[in-house]
Amino acid sequence: MIEAAKIWNEPNNKSHWDILIDPDWTMFASLSLAAGKAIRSAHPTLPRVLGGISPIDPSFLRNMQARGVLDHVDAVAVHGFPLDWNLWQIAEWPAKIDEIKAVTPLPVWVTEVGVSSFGAEEVQAWGLTRTAELLIGRAPRIHWYSLYDLPSSWEATTRHKEAEGSSYYRHFHMGLLREDGTPKASADLFAQYAPAMGLCQWFHFEDHRLDDAVRWMRRLGVQHLRTGLSWADSFRPNALDWFDRQMDALAEFQVTVTFCFTPEHRGIEPHHTSPPLDVNEFAEFCAQMVERYCAKTGLAPSAASSRPAISEPTCAP
Rank of each mutant, 00 (worst) to 15 (best):
P313R: 04
P151H: 07
V255H: 01
V115Q: 13
A42H: 09
E10A: 13
A4F: 02
S230A: 09
V110R: 00
P11F: 09
F190M: 15
W126N: 14
V108G: 01
L177V: 14
K6G: 07
E179C: 03
A196Y: 03
A5H: 07
H208Y: 12
S32F: 09
A251T: 10
W88R: 11
L147M: 09
E164W: 15
H43M: 11
W144V: 07
A295D: 05
L87Y: 04
S311R: 05
H72P: 08
A300H: 08
G165R: 02
A125S: 13
A303E: 14
G175A: 03
G267N: 06
A91M: 06
G36T: 02
P151C: 03
T227E: 02
Y169I: 02
E269V: 12
E164C: 02
L134F: 06
L189Y: 09
T131A: 14
C200M: 10
P183L: 07
F118Q: 13
R130K: 15
L150Y: 07
Q288S: 13
A249E: 06
A5E: 07
R170S: 04
G181H: 15
W154S: 07
A309M: 02
F253V: 05
N63K: 09
I19P: 00
A309E: 13
R67N: 02
D24P: 00
L250V: 03
F81D: 00
V279F: 06
S167P: 00
L210I: 02
P270C: 04
L46E: 11
G175F: 04
R218C: 01
A95W: 00
A4M: 10
S116E: 09
G51D: 08
E164V: 00
D74Q: 05
A163S: 14
W202I: 07
V214A: 08
T262K: 14
G36I: 01
T262F: 13
S186V: 10
K37D: 15
F253D: 02
G80Q: 02
V76C: 13
G119Q: 13
G52F: 04
P275M: 04
T273F: 01
E206W: 07
A304G: 15
P47Y: 02
V115M: 09
I19H: 02
D180P: 07
D233T: 00
T104A: 01
M217L: 08
P82Q: 05
R130W: 09
R67E: 02
A232F: 07
N86E: 14
L135N: 07
D211R: 02
D71Q: 15
R245H: 11
R170W: 10
E121N: 04
V108Y: 05
T26L: 08
Y168C: 09
T158F: 05
I7H: 00
T158A: 06
E162Q: 08
S146C: 11
K6L: 04
R67M: 07
L83G: 06
A132I: 05
R209T: 07
D84E: 07
V103M: 10
